[in-house]
Design a protein around this nucleic acid. Structure first.
Lengths: 143, 143
DNA sequence: GTTGACCTTCGAGTTACTCTAAGGTTTAAG
DNA sequence: CTTAAACCTTAGAGTAACTCGAAGGTCAAC
């Protein structure tokens, strides 16, 4: 099948499939006489795996490694477990980070409601975003 | 003060400060006779605001807009409120997304524990990541 | 035989920087 | 006065994972 059909069968975009091939994540498929990419069912299975892995936001470098193992008929289980553990840690860390930002933004929005459009003058850039706890450190203080 | 001192005073890296200037987020500061950037306290205040906004992951385009208003002595309150609302929505959306991924990964890790290193053969790329609910849609089924 | 949908390649654009290279300036020490 | 460290300058490439555009070849239908 041609790339468009493979794209529909996997939910990937044709441009993304070409990109993965160019990046060495996927082996180049066969070609028709006229030079069109020609995908087999095995190719589509691989594409589908890549889509699934990327939907889990597993980095392309890791996907490449896992796909490489499978192409050499090796079980990628160890690598997969390691990658999943790393990914899990990264995601939890990022969730914590974003929750911190969310809380901080919520605080600033409350502050914005209080401030209204009162303007403290040219002494600051923005009375809403400039945090109380972000005051100018005394760079030239006696010390 | 020179860029290194401004960097220390704001917590930004000197390279990042140059980058912001190049991107038009910040006005170019004065220069010494020998061509070194020379920052005033007002410059540092602006830098500090940028750092704060970026620590909230507000996109640089928005920071540029807000800084532009301040440079023209206009209150950026409306824009700031709008940007914060958008940022808040983006962050909450991303948190939800990541929580979904986290749950999915947790499920796959449990599956990996069950599977052990049993290998179902060459029929699939990876028995752990290939989801049950991600089975091959019947692209050539009678219809 | 020509329209339209599909395919090809290459290169540039996205976000927000970071890094490297190749060089000029300042400051302190000897 | 010279030298070395630490600072500064610029331009350009690299990062992640694609997406988009340009310029053109191919295939199916009418």
């Amino acid at each position: 099948m041609r790339i468009g059909e493979a794209a529909k069968a996997t939910g990937l975009e044709a441009t993304a499939i070409r990109f993965y091939e160019k990046q060495g994540v996927l082996p180049g498929p066969g070609r028709t006489d006229s030079g069109y990419r020609d995908y087999t069912q095995a190719d589509v299975d691989l594409l589908r795996f890549v889509r699934r892995a990327r939907s889990l936001e597993i980095p392309l470098d890791d996907v490449r490694e896992i796909v490489g193992l499978r192409i050499n008929d090796q079980a990628p289980c160890d690598v997969v477990r390691k990658v999943m553990a790393r990914e899990m840690a990264a995601i939890e860390s990022r969730i914590n980070e974003l929750e911190g930002l969310r809380d901080e933004l919520a605080r600033l929005q409350m502050k914005a409601d209080e401030v209204g459009d009162d303007w403290p003058g040219g002494a600051c850039v923005c009375p809403i975003v400039e945090a109380d706890d972000f005051a100018s450190p005394k760079t030239t203080a006696a010390g």
